[in-house]
C-alpha cells in the first residue's frame, strides 16, 4: 500500500533555513544541507526547499544548496520559489532537484505548467498554491494569492478549487495546498480546504500550513484526504521528531514508512 509522506519544508533565504510565523519574524533555523541530511537520517520521505527570496542574484546560492544536498541525500527533493521559466526549472533539476514547485509564475502564465510538463514530465511539475479563506461566505471559498514569499502576498481573482482543477488539466503532477490563514500558527491545517481540493483532483495533494502537533497531520491525512503532509516549525525547532510523528500516525493505522 502506498504510504503517506511526511515532508519537512525548509524555507531558505540567502542560503540559510528560516521559518517565520505567517511569513514574518524570520528566525535562523540552520544550514539547509545539514538539516536535509538530518531529516533524511530521521526518516523524512521527501525534502522541500522553498527559496523565499529568490531574487535573481540569490538563485545561484540556491542552486549550490541543491547541488550539495543532492550529493548526500538520497530521497526526493523539491525546489520552489521564484522559478519563472522552463530554463529556471531545468537549472534546478540539473542541480539535483527531482521536482520543481511553481506558484506565482503559474498564475501569471498558466502555460508554464504545460511547458514544464511537456519538457520534464508531469511528475516534475508541482503546483504550489497559497490560498486564503474568503471571509464570511458559506459554503466556504478560498482565494489564490501570489508573491507570498515577500510579505502578505497579493490576491488574485482565482478560486482555489477551480485553479487546482485547471492546473491538473494543464499538466501539474501534484498540488501543494498551503493555507495562508494557518501558515506558521501551529494551530492545525485548513482541513476543509484540503478536502475540497483533494476530492476533486486526480493527482496527489500535499497539505501545508498550520502543523503544530501530530494530531494535525493525522487530520490532514484522514479528514483532509491529503496524500502527504508538509511541516516546518514543529520539526525545525525539535518540538516533535519525524520519527515521533511517524510512529504516532502508524499507531493510528495510517500507512507510513517507518
Amino acid at each position: 500500500m502506498l504510504t503517506k509522506r511526511i515532508i519537512p519544508c525548509l524555507d531558505v533565504k540567502g542560503g540559510r533555513v528560516v521559518k517565520g510565523v505567517r511569513y514574518r519574524d524570520l528566525q535562523d533555523a540552520g544550514d539547509p544541507v545539514e538539516l536535509a541530511a538530518f531529516y533524511n537520517e530521521q526518516g523524512a520521505d521527501e525534502i522541500v526547499f522553498y527559496d523565499i527570496t529568490a531574487s535573481s542574484d540569490e538563485r545561484g546560492i540556491m542552486q549550490e544548496v541543491v547541488e550539495r544536498t543532492a550529493d548526500q541525500v538520497f530521497i526526493p527533493l523539491t525546489v520552489g520559489g521564484g522559478l519563472r521559466t522552463v530554463e529556471d526549472m531545468r537549472r534546478m533539476l540539473e542541480s539535483g532537484a527531482d521536482k520543481v514547485s511553481i506558484n506565482t509564475a503559474a498564475v501569471q502564465n498558466p502555460h508554464l505548467i504545460t511547458e514544464g510538463a511537456e519538457r520534464f514530465g508531469s511528475q516534475c511539475i508541482i503546483l504550489g498554491m497559497d490560498a486564503k479563506r474568503v471571509p464570511d461566505v458559506s459554503p466556504p471559498r478560498w482565494g489564490v494569492f501570489t508573491h507570498t514569499g515577500t510579505g502578505g502576498g497579493r490576491p488574485t481573482n482565482l478560486d482555489a478549487v477551480e485553479w487546482a482543477v485547471r492546473t491538473v488539466e494543464l499538466g501539474a503532477g501534484e498540488i501543494v495546498v498551503n493555507s495562508i490563514d494557518a501558515d506558521g500558527t501551529q494551530s492545525g491545517y485548513d482541513i476543509e480546504l484540503l478536502h475540497a481540493i483533494s476530492t476533486v483532483v486526480t493527482v496527489p495533494v500535499v497539505a501545508s500550513g498550520g502543523a503544530g502537533a501530530p494530531e494535525d497531520l493525522y487530520q490532514a491525512l484522514v479528514e483532509g484526504k491529503a496524500d502527504a503532509v508538509l511541516a516546518a516549525s514543529i520539526f525545525h525547532y525539535g518540538t516533535y521528531s519525524i520519527q515521533e510523528v511517524k510512529k504516532y500516525l502508524a499507531a493510528k493505522g495510517i500507512p507510513i514508512r517507518i
Binding site: 502506498l2 509522506r5 501534484e174
Partner: peptide, 13 residues
C-alpha cells in the same frame, strides 16, 4: 487503473 491518484507517487512496498 483509475480510482486512485495518478501518478503513483511516493513510497510503496
Amino acid at each position: 487503473p483509475d480510482g486512485q491518484k495518478i501518478p503513483h507517487m511516493g513510497w510503496n512496498q
